[in-house]
């Protein structure tokens, strides 16, 4: 088959990530106009506020305007512990966001469950939705969050966000099917 179609490994991603000039221009625009949806469930929210506030100023990176509707946002910040009971709500929020979309897990609880290894806490938000960047820390320093934003922007520019890769995969599959139908 050549390109493996059911993986998100980076070496395969590199094959897909060949971009046209239009892709590069589009991704350049995307990375400077992130609209965040803060899914704030716990104490990490205080750190998120300090990052979004004037001192650390997330607006420098274009992520200026938190939208409180998932339909108007393309960056989901999962800030705090996700319980098993919240899983369906989180998945629904993610499904409602506009494509392409990116996810940052903010803090250890959202990344791995942190010290909540018991009946109620989900061991990482990536059990339910694909996460692009994980930020460790309990809670993380604002500098770590800014670092994660820069990492995410690099990823967007390279076309390696999970939703971007999914789009690419679907395009490749569609092209293959079109080829196959022509051959027949």
């Amino acid at each position: 088959m050549g390109v493996e179609l059911t993986t998100t490994r980076l070496e395969d991603a590199a094959k897909w990530a060949k971009q046209s000039k239009l892709d590069r221009a589009t991704n350049w625009g995307r990375k400077f106009s992130l609209f965040t949806y803060p899914f704030v469930t716990a104490c990490c929210g205080m750190e998120f506020m300090s990052v979004a506030g004037p001192k650390y100023d997330l607006a420098r990176f274009g992520a200026e305007f938190p939208r409180f509707s998932p339909r108007q946002s393309d960056l989901l910040m999962i800030v705090g512990t996700i319980t098993e009971k919240q899983g369906p709500a989180l998945k629904r929020v993610y499904d409602q966001m506009t494509e392409p979309k990116w996810v940052i897990a903010f803090g250890v609880c959202a990344s791995t469950g942190g010290f909540y290894q018991n009946y109620h806490a989900m061991p990482g938000a990536d059990q339910v939705i694909p996460v692009d960047v994980y930020i460790p820390g309990c809670p993380p320093r604002p500098e770590q969050v800014l670092d994660a934003m820069i990492m995410l922007m690099d990823r967007i520019q390279a076309g390696r966000g999970h939703s971007q890769l999914r789009d690419k995969r679907e395009q490749i599959i569609a092209a293959r099917e079109a080829e196959a139908s022509v051959d027949e």
């Binding site: 109620h120 989900m122 339910v128």
Partner: peptide
Amino acid sequence: FLYEEFVGYPLRKDYPKEKRQPLVRR
């Protein structure tokens, strides 16, 4: 607190510590 689908009572001492009862998974 817990959801209707939950089976068992988690604060009983014989409930397994690592047992998860997920509602959704990827």
